[in-house]
Computed example of a mutant assay.
Amino acid sequence: MIGSGVPRDGLTDRSYETLRDRILDGRLAPAERLQIDRLSKELGVSHTPVREALNRLVSEKLVTLAPYKGFSVTPLLDVESLRLLLEARRVIELGALERSVVLATSSDLEGIRQVLAKLDGLVAGPELDIVSFNQLDAEFHQMTITPCRNPYLVGSYDDLRVHLQIARYYRGRPAADSQQAQTEHHAIVDALAAGDRDTLIAAASRHIDTVSERLAGEGAEVPA
């Protein structure tokens, strides 16, 4: 049970966070119907916080609401939608990095390196934990653009990356792909730390190209 005696806003926030996490890690699958009564019982709250949480997820495009059908997890993006998402990511991420390379502090860089080290540890393990890698990968990229100090850029990027994170989860991530991603991540951090704008943009652009080629080549269907 999420908790009793908690203000309704708090119950809504907790319901939202729980449902969002379940969508991002695959416990709630793409296109799965979301019944308020069932979720209310599972989370130990009334219908109202669940409905409010679901409406918040609708605004993030993680959940859809259809007349006479109710709420459901948003289906996986098809290949064309994924291409458009990655195109938008390129514009937002590279634009943010152009500012991050100027404004990043030593504290920013230390936080980024800590996440990078955790990713290195996962890649070095005997079996890749895909869910953990994807979560840390998303955190890494978010931290590289946060130093741009523009909440609109950061917010726009965050809206996009959750769908990319879900797509990655359902396509898997071979160990070789993760190792390549880490090589590219290190190049991004090195250029950011050196304040080398041109090298940073080139490194980030190559990384986005690699992601685009792999995801577009694998299609958009959920494995059976």
Rank of each mutant, 00 (worst) to 15 (best):
P223L: 10
A53I: 07
Q114W: 00
T105R: 06
L57V: 08
L94H: 07
E184Y: 06
T144M: 08
K69Q: 15
I208M: 03
Q35W: 06
R113S: 09
A204S: 07
L54T: 13
S212R: 13
V45K: 01
L215F: 02
G195S: 05
H47T: 14
K61Q: 15
P49C: 01
R149L: 13
L24E: 11
G195P: 02
A66S: 14
G111Y: 00
I166K: 14
T64A: 10
D9M: 06
V58G: 06
A204H: 04
A181M: 07
I2G: 10
E60P: 14
T146R: 13
D108G: 05
V91H: 12
P126K: 06
E218R: 10
R89E: 15
A31M: 10
I92H: 06
A220C: 12
L62A: 07
F133I: 10
T183I: 10
T64R: 13
E80W: 08
L116W: 00
R173C: 13
A187I: 08
V154R: 01
D9E: 14
V154Q: 04
H163W: 09
Y169L: 15
L119Q: 08
S46A: 13
D158H: 10
S107V: 14
T144Y: 04
T146L: 07
T12E: 10
L136F: 12
S106T: 15
T144D: 01
I188M: 09
A220M: 04
T64I: 15
A88V: 00
D37L: 07
S132V: 09
G219Y: 02
N55T: 04
S59R: 12
P49W: 01
S205W: 03
V79T: 14
A167M: 08
R20E: 03
A220V: 00
D209M: 09
F133R: 03
E218M: 07
L109H: 07
V73S: 04
R161Q: 14
V101K: 03
A176L: 08
